[in-house]
Design a binder for these strands. Structure first.
Lengths: 188, 188
DNA sequence: CTTTAATTGTACCGATAGGTACAATACAGA
DNA sequence: TCTGTATTGTACCTATCGGTACAATTAAAG
């Protein structure tokens, strides 16, 4: 009995494992153990080994955010896109029970391997949000500050909700952040 | 040639290594490589091995925050203690170039090993800050929300400043958070 | 200067890390 | 059905993992 995979099917599985175990904590044997995918397949699709796997996951995450969040913020109706962002963020991170892989990689030495990708993810998020805020009539400087505050706040909410292991704190914090952002839109 | 250590001297060194490499990324050989301390000494002071080393570091960090930040928040003049907190936090995290070990451990599977210590660190921080806010005249509910927002915001600032690798963003975010907290003190 | 206990360097251990080689298998197109 | 390519399981490699054992060395007390 043999199961045949495609690269696109494997990447999300790898994503969950890297999220849970971190880069160093993710071993090939644990990947096999959790997914049933053997080394043969893994190195067939990712000849660069573990590092290429993690890079593929980062690119996948980045792509998801690009189409689901950044592009709407840049192109669609600003207020609607911002509102949709909060909903999508809450869904994506499963109300705080799922962490941000990019943020986690930023904290330890893993950052050195992927620093351009990590940096880019956050720069583009902040910039897309900033542009949306400007379109609502917010001044340039205030828009940047508000965008940084929101993106930074989301990362903090993820850390805190995992640390406290409380169901509702992520949603509560997201609501506070959304209110702050709404305040930045109308006035100032 | 032989150097003699004490446990108290080793713990801070281990702290910096765990901070940089994470729990899984920290190996005994890398500890030796960076500190010159061999396995003999390491297992003499920490018979429980790597896990005991990390636990000792967490306890050390916790102790520092307890005396430098939590106790003043509970006992000293509330406004002065809050002001001192922001300065101490900025110093401790070296303007964002040093991460929060407890927050980092919270993100991956390492959390399972130390979840009570991780939880406690944040619960006590939030609670001490909440009490200080109440003493300034802030209502109970608003105080809890503001305390959560501040502690969560600090963690987010650490993630973001590492990810962007920008010198000034940590200080900027801390200033914003301090202003929010100041606003919670006077009114509401 | 001894004695004694605390501390440390070195040599080891089995298990597992990431990675390679390659034959066996599955599958798509002719 | 046959053929060639894509995919996969297995065996194997070296390096290193966390950990143990213990003799050599050090510092402290008398």
């Amino acid at each position: 009995m043999k199961t045949v995979y495609e690269r696109a099917d494997i990447v999300p599985l790898l994503g969950e494992i890297f999220r849970e175990l971190g880069y160093e904590g993710t071993t090939l044997s644990r990947i096999t153990e959790r997914t049933g995918i053997g080394k043969g397949s893994l190195y067939h699709f990712f000849p660069g080994g573990k590092e290429e796997m993690a890079a593929a996951v980062l690119a996948d995450v980045d792509g998801w955010f690009e189409t689901a969040i950044y592009e709407p913020l840049r192109q669609d109706d600003a207020r609607a896109a911002i509102e949709a962002m909060w909903i999508n963020v809450n869904d994506y991170f499963r109300s705080g029970s799922r962490i941000c892989l990019v943020g986690a990689f930023a904290l330890d030495e893993t950052r050195q391997r992927f620093s351009p990708a990590i940096r880019d993810y956050f720069v583009r998020w902040i910039d897309a949000l900033r542009l949306a805020l400007v379109r609502t009539g917010c001044s340039g400087e205030a828009a940047l500050a508000a965008a940084e505050e929101a993106v930074s706040g989301i990362q903090g909410a993820l850390v805190l909700s995992r640390a406290l292991d409380e169901r509702d704190i992520f949603g509560r914090t997201l609501n506070r952040l959304a209110e702050r952002l709404a305040a930045a839109q109308s006035g100032n």
